[in-house]
Each structure stands twice: as C-alpha cells, then as structure tokens.
C-alpha cells in the first residue's frame, strides 16, 4: 500500500515538507499524523483526496493522493 501526500503554501513551510509517501493509513487524519510525525493540526486545515475536497475522517485507499493546505486565497 502506498499513499502520496502533498502539502501546499504556508502549511508546506510549517510542516517542512512538500511531499511524502506513507505505507498505510485508514483516514486522512492518520495520513497527517504519519506524514508529519504527529505535528499539531492547524484549526483551518483543508484536506483533498484525489483532487476532491474531503474531511479528516474520510477514508483513504492504496494509491490515493492526499493533500493538506490552508484556506485558499486566489482570485
């Protein structure tokens, strides 16, 4: 099992990682804990799984891409 993990913007700088791979997890929250070595989650943490918005308790599967980022500020 392999899950790709990505971090963007201020969160990338805060975590100190732009991407990572983890072997196994059941939820996005578990992906966060494993990829960040249980760093504290920001209150406004946003999650996407396979390019779609998701929740921290959303399930993850083998081959998924899980992204963590702060609230968006485009436009």
């Amino acid at each position: 099992m392999s899950i790709q993990v990505k971090f963007f913007a201020s969160l990338r700088e805060q975590v100190g990682l732009s991407d990572s791979t983890i072997e196994q997890a059941s939820t996005a929250a578990e992906v966060w804990d494993l990829a960040t070595n249980k760093q504290q989650q920001p209150d406004n943490l946003v999650v996407a799984i396979n390019l779609e918005y998701a929740k921290l308790n959303s399930s993850v599967n083998d081959g998924d891409e899980v992204a963590f980022f702060p609230p968006v500020t485009g436009g």
Partner: peptide, 14 residues
C-alpha cells in the same frame, strides 16, 4: 463563478 473561485479554487497568495 468569481465567488466560488475565490473561496474554493486551490490558489494561495504570498
């Protein structure tokens, strides 16, 4: 469209 983009499209400004 602009409201949806501003609050949901994954862009970040520095």
């Amino acid at each position: 469209l602009i409201e949806q983009l501003k609050f949901n499209a994954p862009f970040w400004k520095k």
